[in-house]
Design a protein around this nucleic acid. Structure first.
Lengths: 126, 126
DNA sequence: GAGATATGTCAGGAATCTTTGACAGGTGCC
DNA sequence: GGCACCTGTCAAAGATTCCTGACATATCTC
């Protein structure tokens, strides 16, 4: 059982995890699944939200590696998709961002040389 | 130098911090300010983004307590607003969410008793 | 005063994210 | 077959967030 301290996330991974967690519904979902694993329909009733919506949020959380889902077939033949939280651990500090940013691919200032974004100083402009 | 491990954020604070950090631009801003404090216009040029936009992002980060800004008057009389990162530290784990969710005020399932959100089972419906 | 740099704020449009109401396909039980 | 549950996916509408191009103010230097 070696602790798996999540090596060091890349900028993109960190971004995906943070944007996934930065939503009240998804925070509640993670909290609920931390208490106990559950399947979609039951979870939807538990936290009072529509199933299609919950389904989408779960998909997003799973893509970010925060929850894990597995389709299981109950004894009575019904298949249910159980979700449980992944044992993640992110230590958010300014330094982590300083490092992670180097492996951040998104939001490049809309590639294109002459599509000024910042206001250049007259000096630099010459 | 007692470490100030950020006691334990409330659900709302955590949500605000995470939604603020879950954005590529803001991640870059935090990273840049971690290297060194800087004032708005210069920072805008450094990370190549419009000043009005940067201004908005900084305001958001400041509201989340992640960066601190102070208006200073340089020797030559020009006033500049310097920003620096706040020494934050959040240990994101499933358990943290389980606890934080209890102090989460937002997104209550649109208060109102009979505005069904989830699909009730026929049993519960009776 | 004109030019350069700083700060701050807005309105309006563009781009995204959220949410809901169908549909469709399965299995078990009476 | 009809009913109760489960799963998954869409399209369209609603909300939010993001971004840009003005404006307005202030100080210092030439």
């Amino acid at each position: 059982m070696a602790e798996v301290p999540t090596p060091e996330p890349t900028g993109d991974e960190l971004l995906k995890a943070l944007s996934a967690l930065g939503n009240p519904h998804r925070m509640r979902i993670v909290a609920a699944l931390t208490e106990r694993r559950n399947y979609v329909s039951a979870l939807a009733r538990e936290i009072g939200m529509g199933r299609p919506l919950l389904h989408m949020h779960l998909k997003l959380l799973e893509a970010a590696g925060l929850v894990i889902g597995s389709l299981e077939v109950a004894e009575d033949g019904k298949s249910m998709k159980y979700f449980e939280v992944a044992p993640f651990l992110y230590e958010l500090t300014p330094q982590l961002f300083a490092r992670a940013v180097r492996t951040l691919s998104e939001t490049r200032p809309r590639e294109s040389a002459d599509h000024k974004t910042a206001e250049p100083t007259k000096e630099e402009a010459k």
